[in-house]
Simulated scan of single mutants.
Amino acid sequence: MTTTTAMNAKPGSIYNVPNALTTVRFGLAIAVMALLPMGNMMAALVIFIIAVSTDWMDGYWARKYGQVTKLGRIFDPFVDKIIICGTFIALVEVVGSGVASWMATIIVARELLVTSLRAIIEGSGGDFSANQLGKWKMVLQCAAVIAILLSLINPDVQWIRIAGQGFLWSSIALTLYSGYVYVIAASKELSKS
């Protein structure tokens, strides 16, 4: 599909630029998870940055050109979860990353919980869109991954390692807190029905 065809795609068509970008991001996420255990930290870093950058682009494009689709509403957050959860899981086995298995478990558990709550609430006609706290959580998690990969590429630069661990612990704290906020919001929404 050419860019012109994608820009002129009918509203509601799944063949559009945002869904194409999400599909590419899915492939990039798999590449990051494959590269980390192989020790290709620089390639993993570059691909991770490209992948998370396309998340902003596909959302912007979908809103600007009216190409928001049901597939996109499901596929986009799914791929976000794959790249974040998968990268943290892959980092568990990388020596020197500082990512423990319980940290990856917290990240995965929070995503599964919020996704389940969203399905229940939106399935009954309610609105459970992502809030600002959830978006900042994603930003902090991405910053943690980038800083950790930089510290693995430059193991002798102490301040990068400290920054990586600071971002890591901050992202875990915000992951827990945002999960708590979503649970409270979900309980209020569910009590209305």
Rank of each mutant, 00 (worst) to 15 (best):
V114I: 15
Y182A: 01
K192G: 07
F88A: 04
T115E: 10
P18A: 05
G125D: 08
A100Y: 12
I74N: 02
K137Y: 05
N16I: 01
Q141D: 06
W169G: 00
A185F: 07
V114K: 02
M1I: 13
L190C: 06
V183H: 02
S116H: 11
G134E: 01
T3W: 08
M33H: 06
Y182P: 08
G96H: 06
L152N: 02
A147F: 12
M41E: 15
G39H: 08
V183I: 15
R63K: 14
A119V: 09
F75K: 02
I82P: 03
I74V: 15
W102M: 13
A130S: 13
A44D: 09
F128R: 01
L150N: 05
L45V: 08
N19D: 10
D58Q: 06
F26Q: 02
I121T: 12
V139G: 05
S129D: 11
Y65V: 09
L36Y: 10
F88W: 04
D76R: 02
A143H: 00
E122C: 09
T5S: 14
M138C: 04
W136D: 07
S171W: 05
G66T: 02
I50V: 15
G164A: 00
R25K: 12
I184N: 11
G123D: 08
V46W: 11
L176I: 15
I84F: 02
V183K: 01
V145P: 00
I47Q: 03
V157S: 12
V32E: 05
T175A: 08
T175G: 04
T23V: 15
E93D: 13
L35W: 10
I162G: 03
N8G: 02
A100I: 07
A9E: 05
Q67E: 07
V108G: 07
I146M: 09
L112R: 11
A100N: 13
V46L: 15
W159L: 12
R73Y: 07
I30F: 08
A31F: 13
I14Y: 02
M1K: 04
L133I: 14
V181Q: 13
G96D: 04
R161F: 04
A34W: 10
D127E: 13
I184Q: 14
I160W: 04
R161N: 09
A9Q: 00
S170I: 00
G39S: 09
A186Q: 04
T115G: 11
N40M: 12
K135R: 14
G59V: 13
F26E: 03
I146C: 06
N8T: 15
A144W: 05
N154C: 10
W56P: 01
K81N: 14
T23R: 01
W102Q: 12
K137C: 03
L35S: 03
A34Q: 05
L176Y: 04
L28G: 00
I106S: 05
L36F: 13
M7W: 14
L133V: 11
V183Q: 05
N19Y: 09
K137S: 03
C142D: 03
T2S: 08
A109Q: 02
G164K: 04
E111F: 03
L71H: 02
